[in-house]
Nucleic acid binder design. Structure first.
Length: 901
RNA sequence: GGGCGCGUAGCUCAGCGGGAGAGCACUACGUUGACAUCGUAGGGGUCACUGGUUCAAUCCCAGUCGCGCCCACCA
C-alpha cells in the first residue's frame, strides 16, 4: 500500500542509499557491452564550498543528462571531484588559526601549515559533495578526485615541465595584479573593476632649464607620483611640440622626467600631457618600455611607501634636502595615507592646479571585493597563452567543439583572440608548488623531481651545487585546466582515459568561460591532441526574485538545501529544469518550487489511484493492440509526450522537456484519461476493464521513466512500490522507453469528447446550474460520426459533464441552453433553472466573437496576395477555420432565434 | 567605447513569422471514495515605443526609451 502522502524527507535518503548500494552510478553501470561512452566531468566545486543555487542548477542539469543517457543504454561516467581552491582554502585555515589564538602561518612555517590545511580538509572539507548527494546527483563516487591528489599533482608537474621545455612557460619581470593584503599575484581575470567616486588632481611639473614654465599633468593616484620617470605627449600635439626631448622635474624629488612623444597620450584628455609611472600602471609600463624609461617602484608588498634604502627611488640622485623632507613626510605610509600627504605637500608648493571629482574604476579582488589591487612589478611565471589559444580557437571555429547556446562562442573568441600571458604563480602555500629550483646565481632548473633538478644543476655548474626550490604555488585554475584528462588517469594511458576522453559535454555557467573552459580547451588540445569536450552547454545564472546576483554580502541567497528540506529534491530539480530556458537568467521564486512539489504529490496520488483500482502491468502488454478508443488515445498521447521530452533533453532544452512532461501528466493523463477511466474501472469486470487497468499501469510506468531524469527520487520510489513492479530492477538502470504507436483517429475522437464536455461544463457554470444537478440533454443535427461518438462515450460524457441522459432529437429543445459543436446542437433543457436573459446574453457574446473571427478570416481569404503567396496548408487551415466558424455562427444564430421564439 | 541579453497577464517566466500561453496570486462554485499539496469554471494582455520588410509581425530588420551583464578605457 502506498502511504497517503509522499514523504520526500523520508524517501530521498533511502532511495539514494539504494542506488549507491546497487552501484547504479558506477561508470558503465547497466550498459550493454557494445554501449558507446557518455561522459561528463563535474565542474569541481571548491573544497571549502557549500551548495548554492548555482551549484544546484549546474549539477541538476548534469544529472538530468547523465541519467537520461544512462537510461538510453550509454556507458556513462559522471566524474566527480573537488578543487583545492588555493586562496579560499588558505584563508579559511588562516582565519581558523586566528580564532583559536594559535600562532599564524608564518610562525609555524610552511610544512606545518600545509599539514594543518590537510587536516582541515579531512575534518570539514568537502561538505558540498554530500550536499550533491541530497540533490540526487548520480556521480561515480568511487572515482572521486581532488586536484591536489597524488595523481593529479603528477599531471600538473608534467604539464609544467613540458610546457617549460617547449618555451611555453617562462619567468618574467613585469607588472602584475598584486593583492597587498594576501601578498600574492593574481591573474587579470581575477580582478574586478568597481566604479567608485574619486578625484582627478591636476599638477604642475616644472620644465627643466625654463624657470617659470610648467607642464600640467593629471592623476587619480598621487601616491604613485614618486615613481614617475617620464611625461608623454602626443606626437601631433602642437601645444607641446617644442618640449619633446626636454625634461620635466618631478616635484618633491627633483628627478628628471624625460618628455617623450607617444600616441598613448590623448590630446583630448586633460591637458594632453600624461605623466608616466612605469612601475605602477599597466599603460605606463608599456610606454616606459617603448621609450626605455626607468622603472621606479615606490611600494613594498603591502603597498606601503618605501623610499629609504630604495635604490630605484634615488636612481643616482644625490640625497638633497628636498628628498630628505619627502622621505620624512611619506616614507612608510600606506598608499591611501600617502595620497593625502602628497596632495597636501603639492598644495603647499602651490603646484596643484585643480581637483576634479569624478567616478573612477578601481581594481578590486574579485573574491574579497574589499582589497584594492595594486599593479606591482615582480618576477612571476607565465604561460604563453597566445600560442596555446590558436588551436583552441580553431576547434570552435571548425565546430569540433560547439557552444550551446551558440552566441557564447562570440565571447569565447573575443577573449581568446586578445589573450594575454597568463600569470600562474601565486605567493601562497596551499597548492601545487612550482617544480623549479634555483642555483646560488639565480639560474633556474625546472624538473619533475628534485633529483632531476640537482642533476641538471650539476651539469650546468660542473659540480654539485645546493639549490633552493621556488616558494610559489600554481594558480588553482592551472590544475583545473587538466581536469578532463587528469581525473581519468593521465599521464598514464589508462583504460578510462581511452574510454571517456574526450568527454561528451561540459555543463557550466558563462562566468567561468575564461577561467576554466578556455584553459581546458588549450591544455586539452595541447596534451591530448583532442578537444576535451564535444559540446559546452552554458546555462543561466540563478538570481534572486528581483534579478540581483545572489551573494552572501547582499544577503539575498536562497539556500537550495532549505528548498530541498521544504519541498523535496525532486521539486527543486524540476523547478530548475523547467526554468532553464536557454539564454536567460533564472529569477527563482519559491512559489514555483511549491507548484512543482504539488506536481510530485499529483504523481503520487496518480499511483494511489492505480493501486486502488488494481491496475497492474500485464506481461507483454502492447497498447497498439488495445481495443478501447480511450486506451488507444492515451497510448498515442504518451508516444507524443515521450517524443517531446526526448527531443527536449537531446537539445538541452530542459524547460521544454519539463513542460511537455508536466502538461502530459497533469492536463492530459490526470485531468482526462483517469477521469474517463473511472466508469470503466469501477464498472463490471470484463475485457474493457482488464485492458484499461493494463493501460493505466503501462502509462504510469512510461511516466515514471520519462520523469526519472528530472525527478529521480519519487519515480524510483514508485517504480519500487507500484503494484506488480519487479523490485529487483532499479528505475535508474532501466531503459528509456521507445514508443512509436499513434492512432490519429482515436485521438480525434477523444478530443471531440473533451471538447464537448468542456463546452457543457462551461455553459453550466455560466448558467449557474448547480454543480450537483444532473441534466438530460438532447442532440439535434448530429451526423453519423457524432451519433457514433455519443453512443460510444455516453457514460464518460455523462459522468464528466453531469448529464443523466443523452437523447437524439429532430430539433433543438425549447427553453434550453444550446451548445453548438460542429454540425450538431446540444440542448440543455433547463426550464426550471435557466435564465432566458442570461442565455441570450451568453449567446450574443458568443456570436459577437464568432462574427469578429469570421470578419478577419474573410478579409484574409479575400486577399489575392495572401492566396497567391501564402503556403497552401496555411490557406487551407484558414479556409477550414472559416468553414467551422460559419457553421458555428449559423447554429448560434438559430439558437438565439429560438430563444426569442 | 565594444559586445551580449532582456522589456509578453498583478508577480515569476515560456513562446519567437500564420488562431496570445504556464505557474503563483485573484473571483465564483465544488458534486463524483487518487489527489483540498485537489477539482470545475472565470476575470485579467493595443506581447515597451516608432518605423520598415512581408500576403501576414509579439516573433524578422532598423531606430528610440528603459533595464541587466561582460570586456576595454578614462592619465
Amino acid at each position: 500500500m502506498l502511504e497517503k502522502t509522499y514523504d520526500a524527507a523520508e524517501t530521498e535518503p533511502r532511495i539514494y542509499a539504494a542506488w549507491e548500494e546497487a552501484g547504479a552510478f558506477r561508470a558503465g553501470a547497466g550498459a550493454p557491452a557494445e554501449a558507446s561512452a557518455y561522459s561528463i566531468v563535474i565542474p569541481p566545486p571548491n573544497v571549502t564550498g557549500s551548495l548554492h543555487m548555482g551549484h544546484a542548477l549546474n549539477n541538476t542539469l548534469q544529472d538530468i543528462l547523465v541519467r537520461f543517457e544512462r537510461m538510453r543504454g550509454r556507458d556513462v561516467l559522471w566524474q566527480p571531484g573537488m578543487d583545492h581552491a588555493g586562496i579560499a582554502t588558505q584563508m579559511v585555515v588562516e582565519r581558523q588559526l586566528i580564532e583559536r589564538h594559535e600562532p599564524d602561518r608564518r610562525t609555524i612555517g610552511r610544512e606545518k601549515f600545509v599539514e594543518k590545511v590537510w587536516s582541515w580538509k579531512a575534518e570539514s572539507g568537502g561538505l558540498i559533495l554530500n550536499q550533491l548527494r541530497r540533490l540526487g546527483c548520480s556521480c561515480d563516487w568511487s572515482r572521486e578526485r581532488f586536484t591536489l591528489d597524488e595523481g593529479l599533482s603528477r599531471a600538473v608537474t608534467k604539464v609544467f615541465v613540458d610546457l617549460h621545455r617547449q618555451g611555453l612557460i617562462y619567468r618574467d619581470k613585469r607588472l602584475v595584479n598584486w593583492d597587498p593584503k594576501l601578498q600574492t599575484a593574481i591573474s587579470d581575470i581575477e580582478v574586478e573593476n568597481v566604479e567608485v567616486s574619486g578625484h582627478l588632481w591636476h599638477f604642475k611639473y616644472p620644465i627643466e632649464g625654463e624657470p617659470g614654465r610648467f607642464i600640467v599633468v593629471a592623476t587619480t593616484r598621487p601616491e604613485t607620483m614618486l615613481g614617475d620617470t617620464g611625461v608623454a605627449i602626443h606626437p601631433d600635439d602642437e601645444r607641446y611640440r617644442d618640449l619633446i626631448g626636454k625634461n620635466a622635474i618631478l616635484p618633491l624629488v627633483g628627478r628628471r622626467l624625460r618628455i617623450v612623444a607617444d600616441t598613448h597620450a590623448d590630446p583630448e584628455i586633460g591637458s594632453g600631457a600624461v605623466k608616466i609611472t612605469p612601475a605602477h600602471d599597466f599603460n605606463d609600463f608599456e610606454v616606459g618600455k617603448r621609450h626605455d624609461l626607468p622603472m621606479v617602484g615606490v611600494f613594498d608588498t603591502e603597498a606601503n611607501v618605501v623610499l629609504k634604502d630604495n635604490a630605484d627611488f634615488l636612481h643616482g640622485l644625490p640625497v638633497s634636502d628636498t628628498i630628505k623632507a619627502t622621505i620624512a613626510a611619506v616614507d612608510g605610509l600606506d598608499r591611501f595615507a600617502a595620497r593625502k600627504r602628497l596632495v597636501t605637500l603639492m598644495e603647499e608648493h602651490g603646484l596643484v592646479v585643480t581637483v576634479e571629482e569624478k567616478p573612477i574604476m578601481v581594481p578590486h579582488d574579485e573574491k574579497s571585493k574589499s582589497t584594492v589591487i595594486e599593479p606591482y612589478l615582480t618576477d612571476q611565471w607565465y604561460v604563453d597563452a597566445e600560442v596555446l589559444a590558436a588551436p583552441a580557437i580553431d576547434s570552435v571555429r571548425a565546430g569540433r567543439t560547439n557552444f550551446v547556446p551558440k552566441n557564447w562562442e562570440k565571447t569565447y573568441f573575443e577573449w581568446m583572440e586578445n589573450i594575454q600571458p597568463w600569470c600562474i604563480s601565486r605567493q601562497l602555500w596551499w597548492g601545487h608548488r612550482i617544480p623549479a629550483w634555483y642555483g646560488p646565481d639565480g639560474q633556474v632548473f625546472v624538473a619533475g623531481q628534485e633529483s632531476e633538478a640537482a642533476e641538471l644543476a650539476r651539469r650546468h655548474y660542473g659540480k654539485t651545487t645546493p639549490l633552493t626550490r621556488d616558494e610559489d604555488v600554481l594558480d588553482t585554475w592551472f590544475s583545473s585546466a587538466l581536469w578532463p584528462f587528469s581525473t581519468l588517469g593521465w599521464p598514464d594511458q589508462t583504460v578510462e582515459l581511452e574510454r571517456y576522453y574526450p568527454t561528451s559535454v561540459l555543463v557550466t555557467g558563462f562566468d567561468i568561460i575564461f577561467f576554466w573552459v578556455a584553459r581546458m580547451m588549450m591544455f586539452g588540445l595541447h596534451f591530448m591532441k583532442t578537444e576535451p569536450f564535444a559540446e559546452v552547454y552554458i546555462h543561466a545564472l540563478v538570481r534572486d526574485a528581483s534579478g540581483a546576483k545572489m551573494s552572501k554580502s547582499k544577503g539575498n541567497v536562497i539556500d537550495p538545501l532549505e528548498l530541498v528540506d521544504d519541498y523535496g529534491a525532486d521539486a527543486l530539480r524540476f523547478t530548475l529544469a523547467a526554468m532553464a530556458a536557454q539564454g536567460r537568467d533564472i529569477k527563482l521564486s519559491t512559489s514555483r518550487v511549491e507548484g512543482y512539489r504539488n506536481f510530485a504529490t499529483k504523481i503520487w496520488n496518480t499511483a494511489r489511484f492505480a493501486e486502488y483500482h488494481r491496475c497492474r502491468p500485464v506481461e507483454g502488454f502492447d497498447p497498439s493492440g488495445a481495443q478501447e478508443t480511450l486506451n488507444r488515445w492515451i497510448a498515442t498521447e504518451t508516444t507524443r509526450a515521450l517524443r517531446a521530452v526526448t527531443a527536449g533533453l537531446e537539445s538541452y532544452r530542459f524547460n521544454e522537456a519539463a513542460g511537455a512532461a508536466y502538461r502530459f501528466v497533469w492536463n492530459l493523463f490526470c485531468d482526462w484519461y483517469l477521469e474517463f477511466s473511472k466508469p470503466i474501472l469501477s464498472g463490471q469486470d470484463g475485457p474493457a476493464k482488464d485492458e484499461t487497468r493494463a493501460t493505466v499501469a503501462w502509462a504510469l510506468n512510461r511516466i515514471a521513466e520519462m520523469l526519472h531524469p528530472m525527478m529521480p527520487f519519487i519515480t524510483e520510489e514508485l517504480a519500487a512500490k507500484l503494484p506488480g513492479s519487479q523490485a529487483a530492477r532499479l528505475l535508474a538502470l532501466s531503459r528509456w522507453p521507445e514508443l512509436d504507436f499513434e492512432d490519429g483517429a482515436a485521438a480525434d475522437e477523444i478530443n471531440w469528447v473533451i471538447g464537448l464536455v468542456s463546452e457543457v461544463r462551461s455553459v453550466r457554470a455560466e448558467m449557474n446550474v448547480p454543480a450537483g444537478a444532473m441534466v438530460a440533454v438532447t442532440v439535434s443535427g448530429a451526423n453519423a460520426t457524432t451519433q457514433g461518438r455519443l453512443a460510444a462515450h455516453e457514460a464518460l460524457i455523462g459522468r464528466l459533464a453531469r448529464i443523466e441522459s443523452v437523447a437524439l432529437s429532430d430539433g433543438p429543445a425549447p427553453h434550453a441552453a444550446q451548445i453548438v459543436i460542429g454540425e450538431a446542437t446540444v440542448s440543455l433543457p433547463l426550464a426550471n433553472v435557466i435564465d432566458i436573459e442570461a442565455e441570450r446574453t451568453r449567446l450574443s457574446g458568443e456570436l459577437a466573437k464568432i462574427t469578429k473571427e469570421i470578419g478577419k478570416l474573410d478579409a484574409k481569404l479575400a486577399n489575392e496576395q495572401f492566396l497567391a503567396r501564402a503556403p497552401e496548408e496555411v490557406v487551407a487551415t484558414q479556409r477550414e477555420r472559416l468553414e467551422e466558424a460559419s457553421t458555428l455562427r449559423s447554429k448560434t444564430e438559430a439558437a438565439l432565434a429560438r430563444l426569442a421564439g
